[in-house]
């Protein structure tokens, strides 16, 4: 009995990062209209992957990043695989810098995020342009990256609450992948 509950607990802990990412993606899939910003959707998946790769790289695996991206593509109607590929690249790049970010003050983290969000949006733009074989407008992409960066502090605050609920990993975290 105890073993079963333990396993369930383990599974819940392992699923928490991808689940929070998926919920964030689903929330931004709903119609929200704030003046002219209503036409731009923030990339919540990038926030979730960035945050979890820094604090729990063991739980935000490539598979989890892929799953969040796939849900984003399914819900937004974007070409299947585009967001998934972008989030895989984000995980890889952030993982390489993970040690740098650990224990740094929040403004460093935020600046680091801005440096990731813009190339991530541009990569998505490039992939979609190739896919649709059309030169898509670039201004909305820049606005999207800006909006995502602005939303990073409140979203990461919520994710920090979630992260504090999770038990610490048994083995010390180190650079993997």
């Amino acid at each position: 009995m105890d073993g079963k509950i333990g396993k369930l607990r383990q599974a819940l802990v392992a699923l928490a990062p991808p689940l929070t990412g998926i919920v964030l993606v689903l929330i931004t899939a709903t119609p929200l209209y704030i003046g002219h910003v209503g036409q731009i959707m923030p990339q919540m998946g990038v926030i979730a992957v960035f945050f979890w790769v820094i604090y729990r790289p063991d739980l935000m695996t490539y598979g989890a990043a892929f799953a969040i991206g796939l849900v984003a593509d399914l819900v937004t109607g974007a070409p299947l695989g585009v967001s998934a590929l972008v989030l895989l690249v984000v995980r890889r790049v952030v993982l390489a810098q993970q040690r740098f970010f650990i224990g740094k003050p929040f403004h460093v983290l935020w600046s680091g995020f801005a440096l990731i969000a813009l190339p991530a949006a541009l990569l998505q733009w490039l992939l979609a342009s190739i896919y649709l074989f059309a030169g898509l407008e670039i201004l909305p992409v820049l606005l999207q990256a800006a909006l995502t960066t602005i939303l990073f502090p409140p979203v990461s605050w919520v994710l920090t609450r979630c992260q504090l609920l999770l038990p610490m990993p048994r083995t010390p975290l180190h650079n993997r992948g």
Partner: peptide, 19 residues
């Protein structure tokens, strides 16, 4: 762990081609 990135990236590209 080591091959997860190319594996999933290939899967994503495959999905893009299929769609």
């Amino acid at each position: 762990q080591r091959f997860a990135f190319p594996l999933f990236a290939g899967l994503a590209i495959g999905l893009m081609v299929l769609s």
